[in-house]
Design a protein around this nucleic acid. Structure first.
Lengths: 197, 197
DNA sequence: TAAATATAAATGAATGTTCGTTTATTTATG
DNA sequence: CATAAATAAACGAACATTCATTTATATTTA
């Protein structure tokens, strides 16, 4: 039998990501995608059940990539300061090196699609995070608070900074903004100050 | 001459917001919108040049509403702690009372549309914010830092909390999450701790 | 005051286009 | 040669938008 052409599969993936990031979900049409990827429209349906399945699979693949990148060299048994630092640098690195993934995931995250992927998220990632927070509180390295408050204070500022950086400009009306290593560490210190007892 | 029916205009606005929030930008079709609002498709084109103009006008109207709500009882000359508190409560109140506006704006904010509205944002809002931050630093009530870092630490956690609240659940795998007054104030205190010298 | 007129609002139906998806057929490889 | 990959062409449906027409009302005229 004939073998699958992995290059085609990858071309479809990449072009789909690019289209969504550049033109939004409106911009993703199966026929345009086929043209961009250099395949027949019908070929896409060999790999994906339908348009929604394509988007959902992209979500899960990119989400998994990001989750794995985040946990690199991370251990829930680490000290709070050490562990949070590792996660910050991991997330920042991933975002900088994979702007397409980052933009795609952020767009999904704030769209109605998010609900559909939500339940299928990797639970081991959340479990590791939960254990880390629990350990930190037990060791008195972190003020006791709900996990959602923790997440909001610990990571929302990071993603906000990354967004400022990747759109290339800062607050409207102001000049450009570049997230350099110094600014990253400065902000991490602020967050640590907030969260440490 | 015949007078404009303001109820029709308002129905179009409201149904458009609802459609986008519920089904994303894909879900907004002019014919569906006309049917939902109880008008002819051609009527929409009396009020809006085309589909993109409709979305852009919605952006600016809702954005303005939110900006105005944020500045209620706010004065850039306020003390840092007082001013930040006022803004937190204003923003939280607006989000809770206008979930449709909030979801719509968040969706825009993370979509390619954002670039198109960006330049047209109200600058007086940003000016007031800039003055507030500047005053706070001068008075030694706030550590000196770039406005983008300030914004990220000061407000990103709030929007993250609101999002947890409004989707009705907390972190994936965990139970539900409700943003009550106590949690809101607790998180505000953490943020203040981070930002005060 | 009452009828006529002017004008913008509003519409239903139609435009050509593009959409997601399928089918019948050809192509490449185990 | 068997079989799955890949395709070109086509499907009806839905798309954004327009056009010829009707409707309602503010203003003018008698």
């Amino acid at each position: 039998m004939r073998t699958r052409d992995l290059q085609k599969q990858e071309a479809i993936r990449q072009k789909a990501l690019k289209m969504i990031v550049k033109e939004g979900f409106d911009g993703l049409s199966m026929q345009k995608l086929a043209r961009a990827a250099g395949v027949s429209p019908a070929t896409i349906y060999i790999y994906y059940k339908d348009r929604e399945d394509l988007i959902l699979q992209l979500c899960m693949e990119e989400g998994k990539k990001m989750a794995e990148a985040t946990l690199k060299n991370f251990d829930p048994e680490m000290s709070f300061e050490e562990g949070l630092k590792v996660q910050w640098l991991n997330r920042a690195k991933f975002c900088m090196e994979n702007p397409l993934s980052m933009h795609f995931l952020e767009q999904i995250r704030h769209s109605p699609f998010h609900d559909k992927v939500f339940t299928k998220m990797d639970t081991s990632f959340i479990a590791a995070m939960g254990r880390f927070v629990h350990n930190a509180i037990r060791r008195n390295e972190l003020v006791p608070l709900p996990i959602e408050v923790y997440w909001s204070v610990a990571f929302a500022p990071l993603y906000s900074l990354v967004k400022f950086h990747m759109t290339g400009r800062g607050m409207p009306g102001t000049g450009s903004f570049v997230l350099d290593e110094k600014t990253l560490h400065q902000t991490l210190q602020l967050v640590l100050k907030a969260l440490k007892p």
